[in-house]
Design a binder for these strands. Structure first.
Lengths: 217, 217
DNA sequence: ACAGAAAACGAACGGTCGTTCTATTATTTC
DNA sequence: GAAATAATAGAACGACCGTTCGTTTTCTGT
């Protein structure tokens, strides 16, 4: 019937709908707020009908986190790989990162950030999944920084971990300023910080080639 | 009887004990984990006995947040006021800030940080209390930055909001690196970032009058 | 079209939740 | 030390929690 013939079984389709609602909910109120009952009501399923898709509530939470991480990669990292290696790509990552929640229509902010705060001290499958994801992200970000060093755009003796640390700090500060303090100027503050961060790690370069610095807007 | 004669009524004493347990618990598992039952068990009280100290669960949560904020001020800001105005005081604030949870024996990390993530998108008394607190802290931090500018230690044309934004970012990055990634070098990374932040905003000592930026390093 | 499989439902379970009420202790006040 | 008051306990409530189980509906492959 359908042209592509790749017809997902019905179950997978509703499972996707459930996870969509779950990610939305987790974004707004955290992964601990994911209960079988409310999620069933939100998707129009019965409690037991929804439950059957996941063996337990915890598995549902982990599945929702996986789905959120998948979307994060799709919205932040994949598009950035189209930018050329180096500072350009780092800037693309930074920009995508601070805008992806609204781009993904997640009113409640970055769900991965929420999960980090929720499970940073509670052992279990959720914490394990969160830590693994964050480690992976930090590693990938480190690679992108190293590329900029190999490029010659950043100093060869720079510390990638320091760069990653501060870049993540700017992102966290952005979320905080925007969502908690309601600061509308957060985007500008974030990019100013990023520019200064790049500048501090930039290779001397004899001020010729790429000398963009603060002039951006 | 007692020399000071300031004898607290019994109720206030147990109320303090309850809040102590509550702050501890909130540090480990968030303010949403504060339930009447578990907290009653933890303090050896009956559910109704504990409940009587607060009119509702929400009031208990708010009281716990207030207590956490009180301890934060006591551990971070008050000691820093003993340092001389300027960069020294800013550094004291920074150092106190990243160590206060363990100094206050809060294994689960900064409870205010936890509350920010929990309620950043959930309207209600808790969110209001969190936002008010964070605004206050940002304002106080801004004052400390301005003092360093008046001092001449930081450039007169520096943007205090930018400094505060990035300093908070470093603190958030520290918590994240330490608690989520388990990075033992987080303290060093944090202080390196702070040094660079101060450096970027430092007044050009002697040298020429006012050099705008970039060429340092 | 029909059989077999997959998906969803509905009712029920034991627990815990916040909250209310009444009764019983402890503590303060005179 | 007695009277007044504050502090705590105990039992019960309705609501929701995650989960199980048997049934019924819907889909899928032939």
């Amino acid at each position: 019937m359908s042209p592509q013939a790749v017809k997902a079984r019905k179950g997978e389709e509703t499972r996707a709908q459930i996870l969509d609602a779950a990610v939305q909910q987790a974004s707004e109120a955290g992964f601990e707020s994911l209960t079988i009952g409310t999620l069933a009501g939100r998707t129009g399923l019965s409690k037991s009908g929804l439950f059957a898709h996941f063996g337990s509530r915890t598995e549902l939470q982990v599945a929702a986190l996986d789905e959120a991480a998948r979307r994060f990669t799709e919205a932040v990292f994949l598009p950035a790989f189209k930018a050329p290696r180096g500072v350009k790509r780092l800037r693309a990552l930074f920009g995508n990162w601070i805008t992806w929640p609204e781009h993904a229509h997640l009113r409640g902010g970055c769900p991965i950030h929420a999960a980090s705060a929720e499970y940073d001290d509670q052992p279990g499958p959720m914490r394990d999944a969160v830590v693994e994801r964050q480690r992976l992200v930090a590693r990938e970000l480190g690679k992108a920084v190293r590329m900029a060093m190999d490029n010659g755009e950043l100093r060869a003796d720079a510390d990638p971990r320091q760069f990653v640390f501060e870049m993540l700090g700017l992102i966290l500060a952005f979320y905080h300023a925007k969502r908690v303090l309601g600061d509308e100027g957060a985007t500008g503050l974030a990019f100013s910080g990023f520019d200064r961060l790049v500048d501090a790690h930039r290779a001397p370069a004899a001020k010729t080639a790429t000398r963009t610095a603060a002039a951006r807007r």
